[in-house]
Write a protein that binds this DNA or RNA. Sequence first.
DNA 1: CTTCAAATTTACAGCGCTAGAAGTCTGGAG
DNA 2: CTCCAGACTTCTAGCGCTGTAAATTTGAAG
Lengths: 353, 353
Amino acid sequence: MAGVRLQDVAERAGVSMKTVSNVVHHHPHVSASMRERVQRAIDELGYRPNALGRQLATGRTGLLALAFADVRLPYFSELANLVSRIAETTGTGYRLLLEETEGTLEGERAVLSTSEAGLVDGMLFQPAQISAREIAERHGDLPIVLLGEGSAPLTMDKVMIDNVAAAAAATRHIAALGRKRIAFLGHEAQALSSTSRLRILGYQEGLEQSGLVAEPAMLIASDAVSPTASARSLGAALDSGLRIDGLVCRDDLAAMGALRALHERGISIPDDVAVVGWDNIAFTETTFPSLTTVAPNLDQLARVALDMLVERIAGFDGLGRHRVVDFELVVRESAPAPLLASPPLDDAEFTAR
Amino acid sequence: MAGVRLQDVAERAGVSMKTVSNVVHHHPHVSASMRERVQRAIDELGYRPNALGRQLATGRTGLLALAFADVRLPYFSELANLVSRIAETTGTGYRLLLEETEGTLEGERAVLSTSEAGLVDGMLFQPAQISAREIAERHGDLPIVLLGEGSAPLTMDKVMIDNVAAAAAATRHIAALGRKRIAFLGHEAQALSSTSRLRILGYQEGLEQSGLVAEPAMLIASDAVSPTASARSLGAALDSGLRIDGLVCRDDLAAMGALRALHERGISIPDDVAVVGWDNIAFTETTFPSLTTVAPNLDQLARVALDMLVERIAGFDGLGRHRVVDFELVVRESAPAPLLASPPLDDAEFTAR
DNA sequence: CTTCAAATTTACAGCGCTAGAAGTCTGGAG
DNA sequence: CTCCAGACTTCTAGCGCTGTAAATTTGAAG
């Protein structure tokens, strides 16, 4: 059963290898009788084409690397699931190789400089630390599309959402509830990521658009991207006297941590503090209260990224294309829609190009 | 830069391909001067060995398939992260190919019958639907280790935890809090999975060991493995008059849904209802209240599974080995330790073989 | 019955690398 | 100064499949 080669089938059927290959690939120019004869030999021998031989001959592997910090973060696992499902039906049907960088510089370098070439046809990469220059220098000739708002060389493709606009929309949403003391939770204490930077920028913009003033004291950093770390940070801030009535979180994990910290202190959500998260991960639907959150259009993101990657693999080598995909603010219990009064926000405010 | 072959390096250095290959692999019998000369050529040409050629020549790819229902389920993403980290440092350093089955029979069949051979060296597979017989028939000659308590042929390796013992321990833990009406939440309404079956069995055993009686009405099925579905099911059961004071959940997602359903109805946890989850996913630490849960020793599971798989790949072909790994009950707020009175449970009760 | 173009099928040269056999070159022993 | 073991290198096959070009067959027209 194992180790049956194309040649074996060819001999059995009394034809050339190439004819067998044509049959296997449903190529045209194979007469029905021949096709049947070959197929019988294939079945009798239990032949299964060997991927390695094919790959070497064609130079393609049908594999894409998906590189990001950590699959355990729901945003990434949801992305992986989506990309995997879309990739399966895209092009020749790509499969995914999982590459975790742990969000560290070394991890990201490692992902870019695998000593072996040819293993994957292309890569989807969400960098967090590495600089644009290093990405450009290290990627060799591997087709790559970058995800997220990290640093990106002008020569490479990239897909992201408009973080500033989204953060501003989220912040305005809270302000529209009449909140005046709106804090931001969950950015890095050291080495602010570009993601956090943009979101904080948008937060400030949203405050100003709502006639409020940004204060450094309202920025609550967190040690890690995790509910635990965020709960600890917010808890400490509250315990040391910080008074807030609204909270924009860098991501849903931070928001979940916030729910915990607020509950523990008997602070009611959204009555005392309105909370908005970011990413619209599955859990936001069932937390208590459920989370209002910025929902990037992940499906669109994955499709656009894969399309561009497939084009690159096919040989496109123009300058980098930077695509912006939609987001929307999903309103749930933690920061409900403003009751009435203020006119409903225009849709356009929630949807960027 | 791209397309530099071993041969090019050999010519540049004025040596044979084999010598270059020896240098690349740090093989012995290469004089220092020769090594240096070759290395210079490699650096000058920016040579990177092509994985495909190597793979075809050695017959190994260094890839393992990791197949399970859906990466979005935290249990699986945590497993993937762990396996990926351990595999990286195991054997020759394996990398992971992600294969999602969606938990469907077709998905599982597809994973087992990829038409191409040779792509991966082995597979870690957590089946949910497919029968032992079909697994045995379809896997061809691909080395596989099965994960979880699904159906497994006697000829194949498998790693799991003692679900019955764990469910019994969880149930006794709740009973030890003095609860009498302990329900079970989260199994499939149709086509019970083996996982659910074993856990329900253990639940019944735990009840009986605590002098309680199992009642069919206390089994609350759920449409899907998700907090949303479980919240809906439990909510409906409560609304239609079901009275409970304890709840054993099939998994942490069901438990998270339960928290939501109970909160919505103003039922206090753990005062009114004590809840135990299963899997010890990261979120259990920060839900409100935090979740007491059955924690399989995932690290051990991953290591044992990888060890067996590596042995299979190396040629071992003895009968299937079924390994049972440890679990422990992690006690948190949703079902705290019994206050005093009843003697502390013996450790042995929480740790199986 | 030829004849020729179209339709099929075959031959064969790699894709890039590894591994075992075979060859070449040391330096010390005889 | 010759010979030989041991140390290093080179040779030479493939690994299994595909793509191109050439060879063969087929079928309709003449």
